[in-house]
Design a protein around this nucleic acid. Sequence first.
DNA 1: AGATTTGACGATACTAAGTCTCAAATACTA
DNA 2: TAGTATTTGAGACTTAGTATCGTCAAATCT
Lengths: 139, 139
Amino acid sequence: MDPTTLLAILEDRGYRLTGPRRRVAEVVVGKADGFTAEELCSALPNVGRATVYRTLKLLVDATIICKLAMPDGEPRYTPSHAGYHHHHAVCVDCGAIQEFRDSTVERVVKAIGSDLEGQIVGHRIEFFIQCGKCGGRVS
Amino acid sequence: MDPTTLLAILEDRGYRLTGPRRRVAEVVVGKADGFTAEELCSALPNVGRATVYRTLKLLVDATIICKLAMPDGEPRYTPSHAGYHHHHAVCVDCGAIQEFRDSTVERVVKAIGSDLEGQIVGHRIEFFIQCGKCGGRVS
DNA sequence: AGATTTGACGATACTAAGTCTCAAATACTA
DNA sequence: TAGTATTTGAGACTTAGTATCGTCAAATCT
Ligand SMILES: [Zn+2]
Ligand SMILES: [Zn+2]
Ligand SMILES: [Zn+2]
Ligand SMILES: [Zn+2]
């Protein structure tokens, strides 16, 4: 996604197109392999921390980026390419992210849900990998 | 699990059975529905924060308790009943936790892994539910 | 039992990640 | 372009957890 499209989506949702948001958009779309909030803050020294975090929240709400958690719980953000429900495989060494969707997974999720007491309101599925560059076998 | 068994496991792993650890064990085994680290600190005002966190880490390493994350990322701990690999369904309202294991899930995980670039080194699967008590349909 | 060794404790300082506040700046609207 | 609601950002604050280090006590040895 290019910055202009990203900003258009925010505009459609009723947000103003401000300088700081433009600058955040510019950086976010360039981070194909995901990033942490702090990385973004460092990359944008003249945008306030609060604004960076606020904008991240807007982008997550707009499903322009995804927020996911590393094994230790550290949050990581990644530009979302798919327009639909999906999950992520994250390289634990370099942070590279692959999105995937698998209908079998979703079917199984539904099946398990019917065996549990209560009603499923959400699920989280994340795979942790070592990518090819980082020493993992390339399948 | 009763406190004595829990402590025996720690002892087997080479740790000393100290007063603070006994007290932590006592409280942890009573929290069937999971708890946060801060809850544990409050429940044990005469055990230092550092010791509470250190003991939690020991218990996670010994697979006596599981550490999992709520949708917003807040960590939650829960006594583990299963001795094998499993996942969790957490009530987003009251924090009640169900453990589950499903061989289909694990098979699908393996299948997806072979489609991804790199090698899977771990996975996280969590379901978020509303339990019966909290308004969710009882299936 | 008493002495020794070493692991564990806990008060406190510190760090990291993120949120809140509010006056000032800015983007849209008419 | 003036009016107004939104947004910004410096910095204080909060929350969750870690590091330090002198003190203490559990296990071991004699
Ligand atoms: Zn990698
Ligand atoms: Zn899914
Ligand atoms: Zn519940
Ligand atoms: Zn599994």
